[in-house]
């Protein structure tokens, strides 16, 4: 699995992560307040322009974005079927803009910076006594870190089925995947304890 982060030195890379995430939140709200397909189309074009600044090229960009873009097309077609073409156009351009802005921020923000912002933002929640802000940041980092491992494990289980001449079924794929992932989670938790990462915070 490719990393969502793209190394670079654009002005977006240099902007503070907190500012970028706050800006993304504000723009997202604004996009949902707008209903004009024309204005939303302008926003989508702005999103394309922003993403193009990463300099990834068409082919690389398409590979990174295609799954979500195709999902947006499906959602828009569904909206066209049950609502009006104007609604469908608004949904299409809104989601395209939203997705491209988010993808750009993700690509220009390192995981470490992202975790730091989330941890800072979650600090006030510590007053409830229910959570530790640093744990939320660490949890996000763990998801990003171990998602490729889980996908690799899924592929290995599929390969094992094929190697034994078995047809992969959801149940026979899911059960070993869950068991192996949980076993790994125990070891990862032990590693976090051993490194004193949580206790130091």
């Amino acid at each position: 699995m490719k990393s969502l982060h793209v190394e670079g030195d654009t002005f977006l890379h240099r902007l503070p992560a907190g500012l970028k995430l706050a800006g993304l939140a504000a723009v997202s709200l604004l996009l949902f307040l707008l209903h004009s397909p024309l204005l939303l189309a302008f926003a989508a074009v702005a999103g394309i322009g922003l993403y193009a600044m990463l300099g990834l090229g068409w082919r690389n960009s398409w590979q990174r974005l295609r799954v979500i873009l195709l999902t947006i097309v499906v959602v828009s077609v569904f909206t066209l079927v049950i609502n009006s073409p104007v609604d469908a156009a608004a949904v299409f351009f809104r989601l395209i803009a939203l997705f491209l802005f988010a993808a750009t921020i993700t690509a220009t923000t390192s995981t470490g910076d992202f975790i730091a912002v989330v941890t800072t933002a979650a600090k006030p929640l510590e007053k409830t006594g229910l959570i530790t802000a640093s744990d939320i940041g660490l949890a996000i980092g763990l998801v990003i870190r171990f998602l490729p491992e889980v996908l690799d494990r899924y592929q290995a289980i599929r390969d094992a089925h094929h190697a034994r001449g078995l047809k992969p079924k959801p149940l026979t794929l899911a059960v070993p995947l869950i068991i192996l992932t949980l076993r790994n989670a125990d070891e990862i938790a032990a590693a976090i304890d051993a490194r004193g990462i949580r206790s130091q915070k």
Binding site: S110, G112, G141, L142, R145, I188, R195, G196, K201
Partner: peptide, 19 residues
């Protein structure tokens, strides 16, 4: 594999020094 908990190496090593 299970020892390193953040996606990028330098960030993971820095995590040990975080506090």
């Amino acid at each position: 594999q299970n020892q390193i908990v953040l996606p990028v190496l330098k960030e993971d090593i820095a995590l040990g020094l975080s506090t």
